[in-house]
Write a protein that binds this DNA or RNA. Structure first.
Lengths: 139, 139
DNA sequence: TTAAACTGTATCAAAAGAGGTTACAAAAAG
DNA sequence: CTTTTTGTAACCTCTTTTGATACAGTTTAA
């Protein structure tokens, strides 16, 4: 599998949009900075738009801009907006149900997975896009 | 096969070993409960052995048992012992270095990745294998 | 009203990772 | 020696992600 880099790209994209202010930035331009195909960017922006993080405009002079201030965009929102997988996957094949341990394992692991996901979200909730920009600028 | 399920399988395997007490459990038996191939299990056990979580013995009458008490095996150790990927991947292609944002993005994302990983480890450090067994038994 | 410039998607090809299998060397026990 | 089992290497396949092409629909402006 190719590892999922959507979150990383999203942060990059949002930083570019923040720098653009109210201007509508084109997917072509963003793709240039991220070094990928415009369609990849538009697919991502589509997810971010559903989550009300960005607003896109079709047509000539179209493009995308932030739906709100950088200080109001939490990285946790971005994380949740994307179809990123879980930290660890459950086993694709179901465990042997004749084994007393196997039988109860899936439920337990699923609960642990949710707990971890929650702690990732809590961590990401500590940062907003503004914090990201400040760190980038300071570097 | 989706994302990496090694952590999930590891928890399952360790639970089986704990139930086995001091007895050496064979990879064939474990594979039966997890419902996978013995080689997959041996590969995993090899990682856990390097981290001093289990001890394997080759030869006839060989097998694997825990290297220490369930109460002394933290899930964080297990997580660190395995080559699980990061929560999100960096972009495979390097960002455009002519773009002032792209230039600084990788370093920032890498730092964020480490922070998240740390908070996952902290979360997992709250549980030991004994806790897992108790939850499984209670279910 | 036509042309140009975009976004939004569908679809397909390519790349990479994970798990499953087979095969076999090395080790221990009897 | 023979049997049993771990440790690995090598290879195949399946799945997911990314990249690429194509095109319909929308908006602006000449």
């Amino acid at each position: 599998m190719a590892a999922n880099s959507q979150f990383a790209i999203a942060i990059h994209v949002l930083t570019i949009l923040a720098k653009g202010g109210d201007e509508r930035v084109k997917s072509d331009y963003i793709a240039g900075s991220v070094n990928t195909n415009p369609v990849v960017i538009r697919r991502l922006l589509s997810n971010l738009q559903e989550a009300n993080i960005v607003v896109s405009q079709v047509g000539a002079t179209g493009g995308t801009s932030l739906a709100k201030q950088p200080k109001d965009i939490y990285l946790s929102e971005v994380y949740k907006a994307l179809p990123c997988g879980e930290v660890f996957a459950l086993h694709s094949k179901e465990a042997n149900q004749d084994c007393p341990i196997g039988k109860k394992m899936a439920a337990f692991l699923c609960g642990l997975q949710k707990e971890i996901d929650k702690s990732i979200e809590e961590k990401l909730h500590q940062y907003t896009l503004r914090d990201v920009i400040e760190k980038i600028d300071a570097a």
